[in-house]
């Protein structure tokens, strides 16, 4: 009989905890009900005064309001180079890519892109190591082995297609950012595009980790870089145009996009 009382007490306790947990999981509606009257009180219909400035939900969130942007003391110079790069794209790179697209089928261009990306592995792997990202480092090594063998010297990204091992895009600019170095001033570099002092210095450091630079002279390296660039852009024609279309000031829009994109890459 004692056992039976125990069991009924247990059941009651269980019921209580169940009820309690359910309400813990979904406490929302009681909170919403509490909120309602106060909000209704503040947003009464006196919209004639300055109250329209305060949106119902946009009540001056300081953190979001601050303009998060990269510092740009060299803006006048950067704008000149931005216009140079813009014209370079429309008058030279785009027509060349269009011609190139006619002679090179898309699969071949994708193959070339993978090949160059595979050759670039040492840079990514080294930067993974420098940031202490061991998983990323081993992934890069595995990718290199798989792509060089099964992927036919890297012309096919077999690691991604067959084994779902994706690239870890690390560079020395991100390594510097990882250890807390800020962007420094924003730079638009002719022929290359948006960068910052930190990331430009980073890409110089990266070029020392890139093996082909050690057995090709300057002219050969430049030719190789140009070819790689044309090949890459030929697969992304139209993206720049559609990005530019969204902006009222493309220079600022690109700067801000660069800043946010790099910030996210460093955080990863």
């Amino acid at each position: 009989m004692k056992k039976q009382t125990h069991s009924s007490i247990c059941i009651v306790l269980l019921a209580f905890t169940f009820f309690f947990l359910m309400n813990l999981l979904y406490p929302v509606d009681s909170m919403a009900l509490q909120d309602q009257p106060s909000v209704a009180g503040t947003t009464s219909d006196n919209s004639d005064n300055e109250d329209w400035i305060l949106g119902e939900d946009y009540l001056y969130e300081e953190a979001e309001e601050g303009l998060e942007d990269i510092s740009d003391p060299l803006e006048p110079v950067n704008r000149v180079f931005y216009h140079f790069n813009d014209k370079l794209y429309f008058w030279f790179i785009k027509p060349v890519c269009k011609g190139y697209n006619k002679v090179m089928p898309e699969t071949a261009r994708k193959g070339i892109r993978s090949f160059f990306s595979n050759v670039y592995t040492p840079v990514r792997a080294a930067n993974c190591l420098l940031q202490g990202k061991l998983t990323g480092f081993w992934r890069e090594i595995a990718r290199f082995i798989i792509n060089t063998t099964a992927g036919g010297l890297g012309f096919r990204d077999a690691a991604l297609e067959d084994y779902k091992v994706s690239k870890s895009t690390e560079d020395f600019g991100q390594t510097l950012g990882h250890y807390g170095l800020g962007f420094g001033p924003y730079l638009v570099i002719p022929f290359i595009g948006p960068s910052s002092l930190r990331d430009a210095a980073g890409s110089v450091a990266d070029s020392f980790m890139y093996p082909p630079n050690y057995f090709m002279d300057t002219w050969e390296s430049m030719g190789r870089t140009a070819f790689r660039k044309i090949n890459d852009v030929s697969l992304r024609l139209g993206e720049y145009e559609s990005f530019k279309e969204t902006a009222i000031d493309p220079y600022v829009s690109i700067r801000q996009a660069y800043y946010q994109y790099r910030l996210k890459q460093v955080k990863k």
Binding site: S253, R255, L263
Partner: peptide, 17 residues
């Protein structure tokens, strides 16, 4: 989209103007 916030991007352009 691809790590670029629409609101922040427009905000930076509008702020500058």
């Amino acid at each position: 989209i691809e790590g670029v916030s629409l609101v922040k991007n427009y905000r930076s352009q509008f702020y500058q103007v």
